[in-house]
Design a protein around this nucleic acid. Structure first.
Lengths: 115, 115
DNA sequence: TATCTATATTGACGAATGTCGATATACAAT
DNA sequence: ATTGTATATCGACATTCGTCAATATAGATA
């Protein structure tokens, strides 16, 4: 398979901002938003996003991400998969290294929800 | 005791925006942010916030919040406590009713993190 | 081929979470 | 005081989550 299990694309979150339509969030939209927020609501993943945001071209190799977090390599790999499944980062192989890149539009969606 | 177990006040999140200082998020700041995000990363609580945001004066009685969620009264009460502990809403008794009010400044903090 | 390095996956574990029914508490009104 | 209503807490349960050690896979190099 090419993509990960539950990849969220941008179009999935149709109601950008909880009050775009004037009606309260229905359960389905709320669940979509919660999936995205749960992906971010973890200290390790917030640190990963923070490091990526400051990196040049907003991308970094896994080898640069493991040490600063103080977590095991499998755990960091797991967190990166969660972020990738939520569409917040993309994965790309270069030789034997894996590079992860921020998806700013998905972060915009999160921001948009709170205004 | 007057306040709930782990009340987060605004001052607790010192680093507003992940890149306010230029340094990546340290584990402690990341954990503070995660507490706030976890409070929001749930469909029921997103619906509660959405309803409150549209209500006049951004406040509502519990009796108006239980039915739209389709969850039991204890469960809604639990979710409201989570939101209150995170400082996202405040609780106030009026007679035998409990009214909850949005704390917009705390939502601003969430928004600020993503820019 | 064999070997080394970087990353991903698996399996297991304790901890936290969302939910409910039952019960307790707070307040109002008889 | 008693009864009724609104809300909170308790106890239990299944599910999800974060973590690691062990292992598997992919790619580079010899």
């Amino acid at each position: 398979m090419s993509g990960s299990s539950t990849m969220l694309v941008l179009e999935d979150i149709s109601a950008c901002g909880p009050n775009a339509t004037g009606a309260p969030l229905d359960r389905t939209s709320a669940e979509s938003m919660a999936v995205l927020l749960k992906a971010v609501a973890d200290p390790a993943r917030l640190q990963l996003l923070s490091i990526l945001k400051q990196a040049s071209n907003q991308q970094a190799c896994v080898c640069d991400l493991t040490a600063p977090l103080g977590l095991s390599q499998p755990t960091v790999s797991h967190h990166l998969k969660v972020l990738a499944d939520a569409g917040l980062v993309t994965r790309e192989r270069r030789g034997s290294w894996a590079w992860f890149t921020l998806v700013p539009a998905q972060l915009e969606h999160l921001k948009g929800f709170f205004e």
